[in-house]
Design a protein around this nucleic acid. Structure first.
Lengths: 220, 220, 220, 220
DNA sequence: CTTTAACCGAGACGGTACGTCGTGTCTTAAC
DNA sequence: GTTAAGACACGACGTACCGTCTCGGTTAAAG
């Protein structure tokens, strides 16, 4: 993946800095053996819930750490202790609602798998979800660490799935083999983000259909 | 253009509001017989120059109206009088440096025209330019007016050129005719922006080559 | 006190609003067991000191919250957190230097007490002090809340003392009893303020003597 | 007059600076023999009228030159050409409405004359008029030129009248002769201004009566 | 009957300060 | 050691007026 390639170094730094400094939601359960007062699960989920609720009503821009803290009935310190910044917090917050759809089982039919994955991705992007994604993506601009965080936490899985589907299809003859897989992935997700970021309207079913149809077409 | 379609209403409002309220750089020369002290060309260009210089050294995020005013030796009011917000200012500021490359004469050869336009676009996006573009694009997220402004001032021309090249090619048999032109445009520019926004690295020649090669491939 | 009478309602509102919303200098020490980071005594005194120093060199008009903040090495927010406006800040700031003279013990001799109080008051008004007082008083014009604040924080004590001295003198025969005490107070302090506000010159010893002599004369 | 004494030097400077630099309303008619376009009476009265109207609805503080210009349909320059600042403008503006009451003919009876003059002065100060006066007086604080201007344009006449009445009364035995005339004037007008500046309420008839009664009493 | 000079409206200009917001850090006491 | 509370220094926001300036256009007396 063209975008991913340039981020490899960044990612590793990220791994050692942010992930280990702050035990994020994913690692929360495994957190053990420390002395002192244990982390409050109540606060953690209040923070995440409040963040999600605010995202439904306002842009990522307008969600402030300050407001989240107040709404969650939590000290600002508690947020900063566990998340290094707003982007990280929001990524964690939406990873619940956004992650509900499991990755599709990759069947033997490449075309079918492609449609399933694009269906899954566009479903995530439908409604407020897609706007939030685009807004976080935007929020990360101008800050390499945040770019990497967004990619790693959200896009990495989708890029990997799509790439392996395309590669699979190329091998079994379902797809033309002269296309650059990495660029094809950039084109498909790129088209979706470009669309998302260019209009205030949410992504609709019609566009989702176009994405699937045309993606199949360019892959042959 | 998929993105453009959703913005049509927005654009028209934009046309009547921002463009006529504020005589921007483009209209500056056409400034007519109004009474009162005429706008200071010196201030105008000092503001635009300062903005451009600052963009070379820092992210769009970090460019503040206040700092531009100070650097340009100008009152903040003077900036707010002519530009409604930071995005509008920066779009005007870069439209000079970014607009230097003239639209390519559309020859009879669709493939050649496509390459020329993509060469032109990727040249603009090379170096700091592409990052600035992505950062402005990002800055506009969550604000429909700014999205529309960015599109109208910058992307509209490029979308139109590319679409007409593709349509031409479809007609004369250079390109396959089963592809949706609008979505093809979204894919190509989308891939570039997705790449630009995913990595802190500037767009390089190698990627530019991939864009041109693969775009040709999917169109035929 | 004629002036005071009209302000009674105002004052009570004041008592419940400003004094309890903002624990001012006077109440600072009594500050109790609240949670959260305690107020910084260092910042508080830096603000007050800076304000006082600036008042020595410039008019109340020219003292800006912004400049005080900068000089005190303090955020503007910190000032606005504790003082609702410039007048309140300056009143607190000068209440230190201005309040140094203790109220005179009210002896049995009314004439002597009167002289002592007027000596105390005119001493406060000598030099820059009187000008500052007049300037604050002026600054409060057109804003009932500020008028009340000035009265309550500064004039109230002086009016009460003078009134009780005059009343005492009327009872024991030192002073004529046909004069309206309230108006007499207005006349004496009024003459001083009128003098102070009518000329750029500070109040001098000569005028102070006239005040004492003539006040005694009109009272008997 | 104690206040006046300290201002003598100031006044003379004033006479040569402001009065000759700017031909004010009073001198307007006498303005002759210059070539060029004559001053527009229409603009002049529009400015004065607008100022007066604004003073009825808002404090002197809140009346801005900018707003007066807009309301009067006049360029800011035109105001600044004829009045050096807001205080000068407002003094001119109110000198019409405020000056309507002619100075009382000084009869042979000092007590009667005193009452007449105080009646005249308190009538001027009744309602919004007194507040405006106090506010202008306040506005002039911290600026010697403006203090002098206020005194000269407004208080001078009243001080002179009152002083000559008191002096007359002292000579013919109507008033005690041991009082300092100048300080007595300061006391009487001072009490009125002190009252005016201490409360948001306008001066009422009751206070006006107290002023007259008690003034007579202290003069014997 | 044309200069010429002062006026006029409009409105842009460089500034200063306003009062508010959000950032990320810090400092307590309570648990 | 973590928590809620909340104060802190900082920096930028967008607004309001200030007093000055520069236009294109009157308007009348002087030449």
């Amino acid at each position: 993946m063209a975008g991913a390639a340039a981020r490899v170094v960044q990612d590793q730094i990220q791994d050692n800095e942010i992930q280990s400094e702050h035990e994020d939601a994913f690692l929360f359960e495994a957190n053990q053996k420390s002395s002192g007062r244990p982390r409050s699960e109540k606060s953690r989920s209040a923070i995440l819930d409040s963040t999600n609720k605010m995202l439904l009503h306002m842009s990522v821009r307008d969600v402030s750490i300050e407001a989240v803290a107040k709404k969650a009935g939590v000290g600002k310190t508690t947020i900063y202790r566990w998340w290094p910044n707003k982007v990280a917090l929001i990524l964690d917050a939406i990873s619940g609602p956004m992650g509900v759809l499991p990755a599709p089982a990759l069947g033997s039919d490449a075309k079918d798998s492609l449609v399933k994955q694009l269906e899954r991705f566009t479903r995530i992007c439908r409604g407020r979800g897609g706007k939030i994604l685009a807004e976080i993506y935007a929020e990360a601009q101008g800050n390499p660490e945040l770019q990497a965080l967004f990619f790693e936490k959200f896009m990495l899985q989708h890029e990997e799935i799509l790439a392996s589907i395309i590669d699979g299809g190329k091998k079994d003859g379902s797809f033309r083999s002269d296309l650059d897989t990495v660029f094809a992935v950039d084109m498909i997700y790129g088209a979706i983000f470009y669309h998302l970021m260019s209009s205030p309207e949410p992504l609709d079913q019609n566009f989702a259909n176009v994405v699937m149809m045309e993606s199949l077409r360019i892959l042959k």
